[in-house]
Design a protein around this nucleic acid. Structure first.
Length: 210
DNA sequence: CCACGGATTGGCT
DNA sequence: GCCAATCCGTGGA
């Protein structure tokens, strides 16, 4: 996969309408540089959150200590900690004080897979099943990429964490569904994923989420 | 001040 | 399919 030929997305990419950005992020590459290591994965599943109308969004009740990065304008990384053990990473979109962000739910491992294996399982020899499970969930992506609270608020046009790619997927490859794991505003069809991709998230029973 | 529960995951009653 | 793990932000008193 020729991801390195792609250019880093500019600030303007992120400072646009939430759902437009979400759909265009599908198929692009999340990249993290750490020391001499490069980790990269193709984005295959996302969810949009919009504090102005969406009661499931962390930003729905206005600015707090946790969600303030969501209000700092498009192009920032919003990382939060949940369930006492997991981090989740979001791409902030739109303008200042809009409170809109996109949760990265799954990526297909592309580069630095040995490091991802070690980050997730503490070893470099894993089964093919474990490779499928490397980055197919929001907590797993952060674990595999080593993303944690230190990265909250990071600038996505910087040198450590960024997204590359160009063009957009054909509309027929983009699927939409209700979002996963929320209890409010459950009917909004704001989950976007690539059709028939084996790296979209799985249920605890191991079935792919369609 | 304190109790609640979560944009999850993995293991097993 | 069901549930425990394990923090800490958030909101109500």
């Amino acid at each position: 996969m020729n991801w390195q030929a792609n250019k880093k997305l500019p600030l303007k990419f992120y400072q646009r309408e939430l759902h437009k950005v979400a759909k265009e992020l599908l198929g692009k590459f999340l990249v993290r540089k750490t020391g001499k290591n490069i980790l990269a994965g193709r984005i295959v599943e996302l969810e949009a959150y919009d504090g102005s109308t969406d009661r499931a969004s962390h930003s729905y009740n206005g600015i707090t200590k946790r969600n303030q990065v969501m209000f700092e304008g498009g192009g920032k990384l919003y990382v939060y900690f949940t369930y006492g053990m997991h981090f989740c990473a979001n791409v902030v979109t739109g303008g200042l004080n809009e409170g809109k962000a996109i949760l990265i739910r799954a990526v297909e491992p592309v580069e630095g897979i040995e490091i991802m294996k070690f980050n997730r399982y503490g070893k470099k020899e894993i089964t093919s099943e474990e490779i499928q499970n490397l980055c197919n969930g929001p907590g797993k992506v952060c674990r595999a990429f080593g993303i944690n609270r230190e990265h909250n608020g990071m600038d996505l046009t910087g040198e450590e964490i960024f997204i590359t790619g160009s063009g957009r997927l054909k509309e027929e490859l983009i699927k939409t569904s209700e979002r996963i794991g929320i209890k409010k505003s459950v009917d909004l069809p704001w989950r976007y994923y690539i059709s028939d991709n084996q790296f979209v998230s799985k249920t605890s029973a191991g079935k792919r989420r369609i």
